[in-house]
Design a protein around this nucleic acid. Structure first.
Lengths: 168, 168
DNA sequence: CACCCGTTATTGAAGGTTGAACAATTCATG
DNA sequence: CATGAATTGTTCAACCTTCAATAACGGGTG
């Protein structure tokens, strides 16, 4: 051995100037947008953005019902987080839990009529916010570029460990 | 009046298929990436991503010192959130608060030597995570596209009301 | 069937975030 | 300079998220 054997500390490849600029812009844009949508929905619909997304998922599901794990996968959140979220939404009367007939461990989250109504009330304002912040500011080409970039990112991040062992 | 006078409920412009796809991809990519970085930094450095970003800002500031409000602006978070964050970082010994000489209301956040050391320890792993999830997966063109898209987004979201009355 | 392992969903505690309210200070304007 | 308006940073309570631990069930193997 000559002192540079295991080399766990080889000088890392830092970000180039272009990459640093892109990263900074990315962080600013994403935090500002998430905050913006959170505030908009908290004000107009009484829930954070993530919870709204859960209602949307449920509204598109077959009988407005979805298994907890499937819902968590689609929303990219942990089952634990979903449990707490659904508990809160259930308290509001927007979602109800039901036992899954085919699997006694399972639960179905069911979007109630009241929940559907809240969603329909909130949707226009939310779409307007998303448009105003994103789609009305980008060219069609940019929208396509963004979609492709995000697809690549998400592809590389599909969790394979810990609490999110999906798509193994 | 003929019943459609004030029209606050004109059918909103929903998202096109392309836009829906882009939006879905965006949400998946950004939440997965943020979670990924949060876990990585929590594991390797004992703090969430946002807190790490604060240390980075401070490390680049003139005497490793920055006014609270300026720091909050740069990190795109509220002063309240920053207060809590700095309180925690101070408990860890990574940041110290100092009175601002020129403004008796003000506080300076100061990155300590220990904080600097923690940052230097954590930086390589963090950069590697960002690379692995983002920059090593995108072409140079895509990196440029992403930067431009995010610049436009951030531009349109600079807060002008509520608790974030910056850039008025 | 008995066993072991993986999965499903929940819980509780610790930590992080939000929004409103507050005291202290500075600024602008008459 | 006096007064009201605006800024700075913190605090509290309510809420949200994370992580590890747990109970209950399913599924394959011998």
């Amino acid at each position: 051995m000559d002192g540079m054997s295991t080399e766990p500390a080889a000088e890392p490849r830092w970000l180039s100037d272009e990459e640093q600029y892109a990263w900074q812009s990315y962080l600013h844009a994403t935090t500002l947008l998430e905050d913006h949508l959170d505030r908009q929905l908290q004000r107009d619909a009484g829930m954070p953005h993530v919870y709204y997304g859960l209602l949307v998922q449920l509204s598109r599901a077959p009988r407005r019902r979805m298994r907890m794990t499937e819902l968590a996968q689609n929303a990219k959140i942990t089952r634990s987080r979903l449990s707490h979220a659904v508990a809160r939404l259930e308290k509001n009367g927007w979602v109800r839990r039901e036992n899954c007939p085919s699997d006694k461990r399972g639960q179905l989250a069911h979007l109630t009529d009241e929940g559907m109504h809240v969603l329909e009330k909130a949707a226009p304002g939310h779409v307007a916010a998303v448009r105003g912040a994103l789609f009305d500011r980008l060219s069609p080409e940019q929208i396509g570029q963004l979609a492709e970039i995000c697809r690549v990112m998400a592809d590389g991040l599909q969790p394979k460990g810990a609490d999110l062992p999906w798509l193994r």
